[in-house]
Write a protein that binds this DNA or RNA. Structure first.
Lengths: 223, 223
DNA sequence: GTCAACCCGATTGTCTGACATTCTTTCAAT
DNA sequence: ATTGAAAGAATGTCAGACAATCGGGTTGAC
């Protein structure tokens, strides 16, 4: 009777594992926008069967991370500037609201968590690791959303997160954007820590406007 | 030169068909909250294979209409009043914004479409067909969201629609709620048709507050 | 040479069947 | 009654198969 230290709290299924891997791959730009994902290839690469892969693809489809057209299969959707604008507008709705709610109900230990993530972003911003910048920035907002007191708001935002991160990655590569972003996020943090709802909303809105402008520049420079 | 009447209706796949059927079944309360969905049974009832069913279930899981716990399978989540509140709050954010935007940019033919859907809801409200009421009410808001000029706003709302419809079904069964709802929706319609942004936002907000109150009553009466 | 029809390979949609793993429930032993 | 173990049910995953469909290239007609 060997004491198998098998404390798997949540048994990661192949499906979950696959969704995670593909999400990360899409997020880090392994697949070009518009490119098609061939099932048999993915199966081979991931070492899984088609049914399992297809289940994972359905999950990703629902997240809008891929598109599945009947008889043509899954592909990476191309993001237009128009769509980016729409996303930033919805982000504004959601994040401004979340920041305000968060400021109204924040607890000390959550403030600490926020500060910690801000420090992490600061470190990332100092480096040139844009992936780390994107991740830490996402963390910062995730904490806010997680503490806004509305699980649906958080859920909806998470549904947008992949695409948000995509744009964030682009705009962070602009010179000076990370530093500027850091300052804006500090404003948000301070307003929340102070419990100032109005200031939190305002800071959040200002941050988004600037992020949007940065994203526009970075996108247009590519096209 | 004969205009090929081949209006490429997108080929309904078994998966899509199944998602639609199950979604409808969940709305109309065929499954009790908390009850488990046994794959083999569903396969037999729907006349499809397990892989197809499982794909459909993954889609529904992403819509949060069902929950899938590893090794325990899919089940209908029990809806809490807390969650319902959260959904109504997010609905308010989204729909108020959409109604305002819609009022600012509506075109005559879209006004006509809105009116048509309002008439349809009126007919449904007069009858006692609560499924029809839910469907037509969803149509009404779908038109608004589709014409708000922000595809992401529409997408996010659609992601919530399943659960919205669920609550709508509950509250519509309250005596007088359908009629009251009709009056509120008429207000929204008129404000949009008049291009009055402020009035549209206000009417939309009022409608949601009342719907929320009705939902609360209908949920509490069950618990 | 251009354009259209046609055919073929590639890919997807779907099914059947199978098997190991993991619950659940029943039943027996203490 | 509590516990534990065995039986049964349901899920997670795979392999393989086949028809329907799509995309691209070749052929044929003008």
């Amino acid at each position: 009777m060997r004491p198998e230290m098998n404390l798997r709290i949540s048994p990661r299924t192949v499906q979950q594992e696959t969704v995670g891997k593909l999400r990360l791959a899409i997020f880090s730009g392994v697949f070009q926008p518009g490119s098609r994902l061939v099932e048999s290839q993915l199966c081979a690469q991931l070492g899984i069967s088609r049914p399992s892969l297809r289940e994972a693809l359905r999950s990703l489809e629902a997240e809008r991370l891929i598109e599945i057209v009947p008889n043509r299969g899954p592909s990476i959707p191309a993001l237009s500037w128009e769509e980016a604008t729409a996303i930033y507008e919805v982000r504004e709705l959601l994040e401004v609201e979340a920041a305000g709610r968060c400021a109204a109900r924040i607890l000390p230990e959550q403030v600490q968590a926020l500060e910690k993530s801000l420090v992490a972003f600061e470190a990332a911003a100092a480096s040139n690791d844009s992936a780390a910048q994107v991740m830490t920035a996402a963390d910062f907002y995730s904490i806010i959303l997680a503490n806004c007191g509305n699980a649906i708001l958080e859920e909806v935002h998470r549904g947008l997160l992949a695409r948000i991160s995509f744009f964030r990655g682009r705009s962070m590569s602009l010179k000076g954007r990370a530093a500027s972003s850091l300052a804006e996020m500090k404003d948000i943090y301070e307003a929340i820590a102070a419990g100032d709802v109005k200031a939190a909303r305002k800071a959040s809105k200002r941050h988004l406007l600037k992020a949007k402008a940065a994203a526009k520049i970075s996108i247009e420079s590519v096209t």
